[in-house]
Write a protein that binds this DNA or RNA. Structure first.
Lengths: 144, 144
DNA sequence: TAGCAATTATTAGTGTGACAACTAATTTAA
DNA sequence: TTAAATTAGTTGTCACACTAATAATTGCTA
């Protein structure tokens, strides 16, 4: 194994992830979507499966609970979502979209998909398979 | 094109990049390396090619200049590097490792490589080729 | 060569990520 | 049945990413 060569992967991975995020964020800004991509990712999950507790939402989004709390605070301040009490567990809170939040997701979805697709120019269906397989293998290798 | 399916790539990319970073950072912490991985990435570049200006270092590391300034501030505070005036251009500053910084890079290098390699268990030389090709294609697709 | 545009680095502001510590509520186990 | 452990969520702190704005310097050009 050529460790020196392989070790470069983290640089490539990190800079690509940052550029993907930055590209989407810039597009959001130019189109005056008025939310960040991380806020978008939470709204989109809620759109398909609300209400959800913080914990469920954290798992589904891959974010930790403190980060999620802060993002939820922001989308609530923007009146796109709201916290409601959990019917059984008083420790728990459920989050659900407001009418305004649902409208936002419905409106923005097609544009977001187009923004996301730009990354896949010059790449094939097969590449997509490699991509998900390799990245998920790395993800699982580092699971402990 | 199945936009809905392809759009998932950004989630996978982001969470894998975060886990790689977090895994390395946790290992650094457990081994009391006393630096972050981003600080490490800057030290390592300097080790092979110092002195360098902020601008060159920003390009080489793939970080923007404000971020780089802060990281350099921190490694200087830790006395691992120092700023020196550019001989020709008074706007410019060069950064170079201190003796302590060079020692740190030399000492930590083998351990860092081992930490990095864990991600590649169950993956092949060919996978590494796909990985770099696909990620760099995405990176370039979003270039402007 | 005077004026202005471009370049280098920094600062300020906002958002996110990881970790630790904390409160409140619930579950478990003595 | 109460004390201890666990769980849900929040807050605080530090580090990093990105944008915009600024200061100092350099270089072009009219």
């Amino acid at each position: 194994m050529l460790k020196e060569k392989y070790s470069q992967y983290s640089f490539i991975l990190d800079r690509t992830a940052r550029r993907v995020k930055q590209y989407a964020q810039t597009s959001f800004l130019q189109n005056a979507f008025d939310i960040t991509i991380d806020q978008w990712s939470i709204l989109k999950i809620l759109f398909h499966a609300d209400p959800m507790t913080h914990k469920e939402l954290a798992e589904k989004s891959g974010k930790d609970q403190p980060t999620l709390t802060r993002i939820v605070d922001i989308i609530i301040k923007k009146q796109l979502a709201e916290r409601i009490e959990h019917p059984q567990d008083r420790r728990s809170l459920q989050i659900r979209l407001t009418a305004s939040g649902e409208k936002k997701v419905a409106q923005l979805s097609p544009a977001v998909k187009n923004i996301r697709m730009k990354a896949w120019e010059n790449l094939s269906e097969e590449d997509f398979g490699h991509f998900t397989r390799i990245l998920n293998t790395i993800y699982n290798n580092l699971d402990q």
